[in-house]
Design a protein around this nucleic acid. Structure first.
Length: 495
RNA sequence: GGUCGUGUGGCCGAGUGGCUAGGCAGAGCUCUGCAAAAGCUUCUACAGCGGUUCGAAUCCGUUCACGACCUCCA
């Protein structure tokens, strides 16, 4: 673990050296989806980013406990009191039980995760599985003087919290008075003492299906509470990294901090990480603009704004080509570029397997490739700069191609070639989580059939029977098999 | 209105006080029966205006533009 990883901490607003609380263990908590509809593509970007973070932490030797929750209760459309439970409203729409909605979209979410080659979190807890703990935490907050009951609901008391010299708003740079001023006109006649207060527990109306008994009557937990409860339960009072999309910074993460401090008195998270938003053709995806696009629509191409489908790995590479903290934009041009880039990298990975060392060692060349090896880790240590990592991998791919064209011989020591090869494959496959989607197509059977076709074409070419030779090549192209005539024979590739 | 962020070559996208990012596209060349692939070469930018500095795309100020969150949308 000789890494010098540093990362941008949203809480301190600066890049900091990553020092785990209890090495070699690292606790990572990421806010997961609310399973009330198909997972949003922007959410997928966030999860890909943290998948990469998880992978890199493991790559450099940490033992990571990765907790990503499933929100299956309590997420209100309006946190201010008159909220509608998203899962309930969807269940009415689809005429299904709330738990059927939860099940349906949890399964769908997991399917999407698999497509994009996301590692499973080591713990994936659900809000409904932690109702007891949420009630306990609410009780503690009341007894600590940070919450009050009103009419069967319980609210967090932001003023009481601030009076104890805590600072609600420090993560998102907000101050409570301004928030109150901003809320004034929106404020209804609700049970809260102050408009910045937020629900820990909500009383269930008679029509409400998702309900649990509590000391304050039948109700359901507030949205922010589950993350506080589950992160503390599985990662401890203070843990290393908490991640999520920027849109969750306020109010969700702000409330989480307040709840945790209200119970434990200590700062819950050492490093906060926020991923930036995903746009489509330069605009935020939104239903009203009609440019909202689902992961499966992007993969299948079944959407009016798409020319065709793009593979999950093409999309994954596109996302990782920009830094997690920058906005990312999906455009057709970008997807097409990424598709080509992906092929370039995967081809290089394939060529790499055929390389051997040559008799003589070119020490300049050797130090050049070892420099590329070192750079992979250097750039990742700098706040997970996947954009730079991919640039480095492209340079490595160029190098591989040069060797490949030079009789597949590398003028470097065996040790250097092994290190180079391990770095290229390790960073491409293990860290970036790219997989070779075509591997399954290259079966043994296909290999043998193709060898036969290539041999037949070869004899045609030897007889200068170009029409037969080209006919074979064109027909294969229709079948998405590309022939490449190299100096030392013909190889094929499934598109 | 408040908080935060962004503006880089034809396009995407890193970087952030002096040193070629990288990719895609374009042009030329090599290889090839022709292609494809690959290689080599080439094109070389930092929104405008001030300022600091020996030197700024990078720091400071300012103007303009765009975006996010604060309010349902991840």
């Amino acid at each position: 673990m000789n890494s010098k990883l540093s990362l941008y901490n949203s809480l301190t607003r600066q890049k900091e050296l990553f020092v785990p609380i209890n090495p070699p263990f690292v606790g990572l908590y990421v806010c997961g989806p609310t399973v009330y509809s198909d997972v949003h593509l922007g959410n997928v970007r966030t999860f890909i980013s943290f998948d990469m973070v998880y992978r890199y932490l493991k790559y450099i030797g940490y033992n990571v406990r990765y907790v990503r929750n499933i929100t299956d209760a309590g997420h209100l459309t309006n946190d201010r009191g008159e909220g509608v439970n998203r899962i309930e409203s969807q269940s009415q729409l689809e005429k299904l039980e709330p738990m059927e909605i939860v099940q349906k979209y949890t399964v769908g979410f997991h399917d999407v995760c698999r497509l994009f080659n996301l590692h499973r979190p080591t713990i994936e807890p659900t809000a409904t599985g932690h109702i007891v703990e949420q009630i306990e935490m609410t009780k503690e907050l009341i007894s600590n003087g940070f919450a009050y009951e009103a009419n069967g609901s319980v609210y967090f008391n932001v003023n009481a919290y601030n009076e104890k010299k805590h600072n609600y708003g420090k993560l998102s740079g907000r101050n409570t008075e301004e928030l109150i001023a901003g809320y004034r006109d929106l404020d209804g006649q609700d049970e809260k003492r102050n408009s910045t207060d937020f629900a820990l527990w909500k009383k269930a109306s008679p029509a409400h299906i998702m309900r649990w008994p509590s000391p304050w009557g039948e109700g359901f937990p507030g949205w922010h509470l589950e993350c506080s409860v589950m992160s503390t339960k599985y990662l401890g009072k203070t843990f290393d990294i908490h991640g999520g999309g920027m849109d969750l910074k306020f109010p969700h993460h702000e409330c989480e901090i307040a709840q945790n401090i209200g119970v434990t008195g200590v700062e819950p998270v050492k490093y906060w990480m926020h991923t930036n938003m995903l746009n489509f053709n330069g605009q935020k995806m939104s239903k009203s603009l009609g440019n909202s696009i689902l992961p499966l629509e992007l993969i299948t191409g079944n959407h009016p704004l798409l020319d065709k489908g793009y593979s999950p790995m093409t999309i994954r590479l596109l996302f990782l080509q920009s830094h997690y903290s920058s906005e990312s934009d999906i455009t057709l041009k970008g997807l097409q570029d990424s598709e080509k880039g992906l092929r370039r990298l995967l081809n290089a990975a394939q060529y790499l397997e055929t390389l051997t060392v040559s008799d003589k060692v070119d020490s300049d060349k050797e130090s050049e490739i070892l420099q590329l090896v070192d750079r992979c880790q250097e750039v990742m240590d700098d706040d997970f700069n996947t954009a730079k990592l991919i640039a480095t991998l492209y340079e490595m791919a160029s190098q591989i191609n040069v060797f490949y064209n030079d009789n597949k011989k590398c003028p470097v020591s065996n040790d250097a070639l092994v290190r180079f090869s391990n770095a290229f494959k390790g960073f491409l496959f293990d860290v970036l989580g790219i997989t070779n989607e075509n591997e399954s197509a290259n079966t043994d059977t296909l290999d043998k059939v193709m060898q036969l076709v290539i041999d037949i074409r070869k004899s045609a070419r030897e007889n200068k029977d170009w029409s037969t030779s080209d006919m074979i090549r064109d027909a294969l192209k229709d079948a998405k098999v590309i022939l490449k005539d190299n100096k030392d024979g013909t190889s094929y590739e499934v598109e």
